[in-house]
Simulated assay, not measured.
Amino acid sequence: MKRFTCGELVEVITAYLDDALDQPSRAGIEVHLSCCEDCGHYVDQFRSTIRALGDPPPEKLSHRTRERLMSAFRSRRPA
């Protein structure tokens, strides 16, 4: 099991929260969190931010921009 430093935890926090780490790495993060109060607060703040912001709505294209893009895609499509 890998032992994580505070700096390493910060680098992989999104992968940890997205459950995208392998099990040994995840276990290493959890061991670190169990004994590092500062990192525990950091993870809690990160989770709170995610809950507050949620998924941002998709960006809307103007009708003109969308039509120009679709025209460009159509013209590049093989016949």
Rank of each mutant, 00 (worst) to 15 (best):
1 M>P: 08
1 M>K: 10
4 F>N: 00
4 F>Q: 08
5 T>L: 14
5 T>I: 14
6 C>Y: 01
6 C>Q: 03
6 C>W: 00
7 G>Y: 07
8 E>V: 03
8 E>M: 12
8 E>H: 02
9 L>F: 11
9 L>I: 14
10 V>P: 00
11 E>H: 12
11 E>N: 15
11 E>T: 05
11 E>Y: 07
11 E>F: 07
12 V>G: 05
15 A>D: 15
16 Y>N: 05
16 Y>C: 03
16 Y>K: 09
16 Y>V: 09
17 L>V: 12
17 L>A: 06
18 D>P: 02
19 D>F: 07
21 L>H: 00
21 L>D: 03
22 D>V: 12
22 D>F: 03
22 D>M: 08
22 D>C: 10
23 Q>D: 14
23 Q>W: 13
24 P>K: 12
24 P>R: 12
25 S>Y: 10
25 S>W: 00
26 R>K: 13
26 R>H: 04
27 A>K: 14
27 A>L: 13
29 I>K: 07
30 E>V: 00
30 E>W: 08
31 V>F: 06
31 V>E: 15
31 V>D: 06
31 V>R: 07
32 H>D: 01
32 H>K: 03
32 H>Q: 09
32 H>G: 04
32 H>P: 00
34 S>D: 15
34 S>Y: 04
34 S>E: 10
35 C>G: 04
36 C>S: 14
37 E>T: 05
37 E>P: 01
37 E>W: 06
37 E>A: 11
38 D>R: 04
39 C>R: 00
39 C>D: 07
41 H>E: 09
41 H>D: 10
41 H>S: 05
41 H>W: 03
43 V>D: 01
43 V>R: 14
43 V>L: 04
44 D>K: 15
45 Q>P: 00
45 Q>S: 15
45 Q>C: 11
45 Q>K: 10
46 F>I: 01
46 F>C: 15
46 F>Q: 06
46 F>R: 06
46 F>K: 06
47 R>Y: 00
48 S>M: 05
48 S>C: 04
49 T>K: 10
49 T>W: 03
50 I>Q: 13
50 I>S: 13
51 R>M: 10
52 A>H: 05
53 L>D: 00
54 G>F: 00
54 G>Y: 08
54 G>I: 02
54 G>M: 03
54 G>C: 02
55 D>W: 01
55 D>I: 09
56 P>C: 08
58 P>W: 09
58 P>T: 14
58 P>C: 06
59 E>S: 02
59 E>I: 13
59 E>G: 03
60 K>Q: 14
60 K>A: 12
60 K>I: 11
60 K>C: 02
60 K>P: 01
60 K>H: 04
61 L>D: 10
62 S>A: 14
64 R>P: 03
64 R>S: 15
65 T>P: 02
65 T>I: 08
67 E>D: 12
67 E>I: 02
68 R>K: 15
69 L>N: 02
70 M>G: 05
70 M>P: 01
71 S>I: 05
71 S>P: 00
71 S>D: 10
72 A>R: 15
72 A>V: 03
77 R>S: 09
77 R>E: 02
78 P>N: 00
78 P>Y: 01
78 P>S: 05
79 A>I: 01
79 A>L: 09
